[in-house]
Amino acid sequence: MIEHIRVDEAIFELRPDFAVLVMTAHGMKNGPTDERARGWLAEASAHAVQTEKIDAWKDAYRAFGAKPQRTRPSVDALTRRLPLPEINRIVDAYNSVSVTHALPIGGEDLDQYSGPARLIRAIGDEAAEEEALGTPEPGEVIWRDDLGVTCRRWNWRQGARTRLTEETDNGLFLLERLEPMTMEELKVAGEELAELLTELSPGVRITSRVISAGN
């Protein structure tokens, strides 16, 4: 599965500095937020907001016609909700890494996917699976699978179908990087997320790869 996830060349034409660390985690054990997860959230919430990284995402949104003050990049929206809200242990884990590194991270239920995830620019006729998600505009950056849109405006709003819940066994995580974040910091963030997932689920099996321009 992970080797078939792809980023369309049109994305790199829009932002040559884009890279995504794709991670799958099989055999996860989730549950309601506990004291351990609360500690992760509190530590992340204490970090200074890294505005230059968030500003890079706002620029990326403007490049495909979105208005980031109305539809905010996910990490921008998170930092405006500090202290971080409690969702469930796995979502808490990736939200804490997201805010710590000012890095948009999507968490998805891998078993709800039909075909591989891919990041493309919409042509405007993509099916609107959910009324709340709406229909993408032509040129909009979206994640999708064979059934339809899984996340609109790069990382603004995720669809309900693939949302990670307390019942999720197998997860897909998308860690999305733009400069000024370095590729080394992207790697470190991925390692931190893998450590938290392993702490929550000692038997979890994690696989990852980085997709960037030219590879």
Results as ranks from 00 to 15, higher is better:
residue 116 P to Y: 02
residue 42 A to E: 11
residue 70 R to N: 10
residue 114 S to V: 15
residue 93 A to R: 02
residue 22 V to C: 10
residue 29 K to H: 14
residue 67 K to N: 15
residue 122 A to G: 01
residue 102 A to S: 02
residue 142 I to G: 04
residue 60 A to T: 05
residue 137 E to M: 14
residue 85 P to T: 09
residue 104 P to N: 03
residue 142 I to F: 01
residue 32 P to W: 09
residue 24 T to S: 15
residue 28 M to R: 12
residue 40 W to R: 04
residue 80 R to P: 06
residue 103 L to T: 02
residue 45 S to K: 03
residue 134 G to T: 02
residue 75 V to E: 05
residue 105 I to G: 05
residue 45 S to Y: 11
residue 73 P to M: 01
residue 68 P to W: 09
residue 60 A to K: 09
residue 134 G to S: 07
residue 107 G to Y: 03
residue 118 R to N: 13
residue 39 G to K: 12
residue 57 W to K: 02
residue 100 T to V: 01
residue 90 I to N: 10
residue 138 P to E: 04
residue 73 P to Y: 06
residue 43 E to C: 06
residue 120 I to K: 11
residue 45 S to D: 02
residue 113 Y to V: 08
residue 65 G to W: 02
residue 72 R to L: 06
residue 93 A to N: 05
residue 129 E to R: 11
residue 48 A to I: 08
residue 115 G to Y: 09
residue 25 A to H: 07
residue 71 T to D: 15
residue 84 L to S: 04
residue 141 V to D: 07
residue 34 D to P: 05
residue 43 E to F: 04
residue 32 P to M: 08
residue 142 I to R: 13
residue 28 M to V: 05
residue 71 T to V: 10
residue 121 R to S: 11
residue 91 V to I: 09
residue 127 A to C: 10
residue 129 E to M: 09
residue 130 E to A: 05
residue 46 A to R: 04
residue 60 A to W: 13
residue 70 R to I: 14
residue 88 N to I: 00
residue 142 I to S: 09
residue 54 I to D: 11
residue 133 L to N: 01
residue 92 D to P: 03
residue 91 V to C: 14
residue 53 K to W: 11
residue 138 P to A: 13
residue 122 A to E: 00
residue 93 A to Q: 02
residue 43 E to L: 05
residue 61 Y to N: 01
residue 69 Q to R: 09
residue 112 Q to E: 15
residue 99 V to P: 00
residue 77 A to T: 02
residue 115 G to A: 08
residue 123 I to Y: 13
residue 54 I to Y: 13
residue 76 D to M: 15
residue 139 G to Y: 00
residue 135 T to E: 10
residue 95 N to M: 14
residue 122 A to Y: 00
residue 123 I to G: 13
